[in-house]
Design a protein around this nucleic acid. Sequence first.
DNA 1: TCTATGTGGAGAACTTATCTCCGCTTTATA
DNA 2: TATAAAGCGGAGATAAGTTCTCCACATAGA
Lengths: 239, 239
Amino acid sequence: MSYIVVVELSSTVEEPGEEGGSVRHLRRDAEMNRERVLASARELFAQYGLQTTLDEIAHHAGVGVGTVYRRFSSKEALVEALFEQRVQAIVDLANESLLIANSWEGFVHFLENLISMEASDRGLRELVLSNDYGGERLQALKDQVEAPASEIVERAKRDGYLREDFAATDIVVITAMLGTADEYCSQLVPGMWRRYFTYVLDGLRPSRTSSSEIAYRSLSMEEMKCAMGSWRRRFQRAT
Amino acid sequence: MSYIVVVELSSTVEEPGEEGGSVRHLRRDAEMNRERVLASARELFAQYGLQTTLDEIAHHAGVGVGTVYRRFSSKEALVEALFEQRVQAIVDLANESLLIANSWEGFVHFLENLISMEASDRGLRELVLSNDYGGERLQALKDQVEAPASEIVERAKRDGYLREDFAATDIVVITAMLGTADEYCSQLVPGMWRRYFTYVLDGLRPSRTSSSEIAYRSLSMEEMKCAMGSWRRRFQRAT
DNA sequence: TCTATGTGGAGAACTTATCTCCGCTTTATA
DNA sequence: TATAAAGCGGAGATAAGTTCTCCACATAGA
């Protein structure tokens, strides 16, 4: 359901003037604040997306903005530090899916986990689907998904599990679509993307004799109106 | 493919002080400018969404901002004037779809045309999917879609054309999903939503023996990267 | 105790919206 | 053609929001 990535970022400071490799540990209270900032950023970026301000992140972490900027030279730097491991996890997922013997199961494994990651983390979704954020290092990582993803698709098509007209690039769009679906409903029913994932997946088979069992109930009209009310409304107050 | 709604908005000015019904025509040049503003707003809202500024609309229309504000008291008023007829068109579409004898064809007719409208008009999509814009009158109009839409779904389910687990509220989410898909690709290949609509629709049948023929080719990897590059990037310059 | 290290958060600097105001221009009419 | 009423453009007032800096004060740790 949810995924956990242990982020282990350097808590040491490079001494710029001295000869190579010399590092110095942060003071204990400083180190704790740094971790609080990272946890806060992780949580708020995941919930509200990358437009979350560093003021909000600082406040949510219980520290001042200055403390954030002392540890991360800019917002961009914080984003990069935070998401590198998450993007790497996507690369790993693609390669790992290729090892599953049954090609349909491999395809589903990849797609389901990819969407699960992106649905539970709005910041990650924005990072993956756009080129606005993320420097060269993240871009290079993103490019590493292409080859295994193509092979996952070709393999499943070759075996007759996946409809012939499907292309690897469709994965990106389907990911975006289900991200939207989840963003729309998740405040009321977390994980609603699985409902629509079932529909889409049933549409990707060459043929089928029945419907897959659907995950999650549908929203009522009242709930839907509530979802509309909060759709894309700017995030108000992080506790 | 594309749809046309003739917008016929009052080009007269109410004389506030005088006894009821007295109206006065705009000067010819003023009338022309007013229409230019409406056309410009229609075009830019459709292409870039409701966050388009009135400065941009004015510039694109070849008039000053002052001229826009002289005719429409606020941005909200312009949006309301512009979209009332479009929302009414959705209500009409729902009722008209119920008149189609075959309930599956009625369902597809409704969904396809609804998504077509919303895909070709980002502003309309934002208006329909959120409650941020649009006053009471538009809200009341939107509510009129609910009853016929529910009947469209129930009818198709009753006849065994549509899978049992589908609900009327799913229409809203599917609309949002395909809107996203189109937003993602439309700069490169307009109408790409039809490709993903085929996948989704094939997933909504209780069962099927083959795949529907797919509309539109997939994007190449290069095109997809280009799409990522422009995804959600702020609109730059309206010619 | 003492100092290098760290802190908070006001506010500088910048951006981006909406909407107003006023000197000048144009239309319509007598 | 002369005149007044209507209309025009767009600079800029106003407000909100965001990134990032700075410095008087606090604290860990030798």
